[in-house]
């Protein structure tokens, strides 16, 4: 017994090192798995609060850009509205939080990372505003990512610039779809893989979200085709380099989409699996 104690006391530093290394290494490895640790994320009181303070100071520098972008979006929406029969009938607006709060949550990016392989954004709205994990995040130009962790006031988003992100996407005006992911190289481009070679595509075609995903509605813009090639290991499929509409290094206001049918679809799919 005494020997055990003396061993522990003699090697206390080494044991402490091994313990701490074990904890941190398991956290690090866990962060790469699908079931990410829910503790270490920037959607917490401390880092969310700090990022919000920093953002409230920085946002003045981008006000002009933001205004231009919002005005452009307004103009686009107005032009849609004029095409409808009764342009005087404006949808029921919630003046405080923006448009139709039951479908879309308005939020703001308070922290953005784009320089590692697994990038995350932090938003300033959380469970209190009705944000739940696995909701889609878009802005006026195109998709941004998918909600990952949610705390009371903040949430984190798996950016499309994340090598682990997989989003269903298709070529506009056709039903040839593929999976959108990122090769970790350029922040302006993502890759659409597994597109069948039957698809007639050319450079400059638009890529939009596909209807197979329950997270995003169909036909939300992603980007345009920049390069088409056939990877050496997959002979029957194209890989497409997609130039993003969004500048992922400069994001301001975003919209979080509540998909009303996602629960029902998920339940249905799970039923199918169980039988």
């Amino acid at each position: 017994m005494q020997q055990i104690f003396s061993f522990i006391i003699k090697n206390s530093n080494r044991l402490l090192f091994l313990l701490l290394l074990g904890i941190s290494l398991s956290l690090a490895i866990q962060s790469h798995s699908f079931h990410r640790s829910k503790i270490i994320s920037s959607a917490n009181f401390l880092s969310g609060g700090v990022y919000e303070r920093i953002n409230s100071m920085e946002e003045y520098l981008h006000l002009k850009e933001q205004n231009d972008q919002l005005a452009l979006e307004n103009a686009n929406l107005k032009s849609l509205l004029f095409k409808t029969k009764d342009s005087a009938e404006i949808p029921n607006l919630d003046s405080l939080k923006g448009v139709l709060p039951k479908d879309i949550i308005v939020s703001k990016v308070i922290h953005n990372s784009f320089n590692v392989y697994e990038n995350f954004l932090t938003l300033n709205s959380g469970a209190k505003s009705g944000v739940k994990p696995d909701m889609g995040v878009i802005n006026s130009l195109g998709i941004v990512g998918i909600i990952d962790n949610v705390s009371a006031n903040y949430s984190t988003v798996i950016s499309i610039l994340n090598t682990k992100s997989q989003i269903n996407a298709k070529i506009k005006n056709s039903d040839h779809f593929g999976t959108l992911n990122w090769d970790g190289k350029n922040t302006g481009f993502v890759q659409l893989i597994d597109v069948p070679r039957l698809a007639s595509i050319k450079k400059g075609d638009t890529i939009v979200t596909g209807g197979q995903s329950v997270i995003f509605p169909e036909n939300i813009g992603i980007g345009t085709i920049d390069k088409i090639f056939i990877p050496s290991d997959k002979n029957h499929y194209y890989t497409i380099n997609v130039k993003l509409f969004n500048d992922m290094t400069n994001l301001g206001h975003v919209y979080i989409i509540k998909s009303e049918n996602s629960e029902e679809i998920k339940n249905l799919e799970n039923q199918g699996k169980n039988e």
């Binding site: 090192f17 701490l20 290394l21 904890i23 941190s24 290494l25 398991s26 956290l27 690090a28 490895i29 866990q30 962060s31 790469h32 990410r36 640790s37 270490i40 994320s41 920037s42 917490n44 401390l46 880092s47 700090v50 990022y51 990372s113 590692v116 697994e118 995350f120 932090t122 984190t156």
Partner: peptide
């Protein structure tokens, strides 16, 4: 030190491991 860095950069325990080592 590493864990706080991880909290702020959403990286699990990557910084913590490097710092402890």
């Amino acid at each position: 030190l590493g864990l706080i860095m991880d909290l702020f950069s959403n990286s699990g325990g990557v910084h913590a491991t490097a710092c402890v080592l």
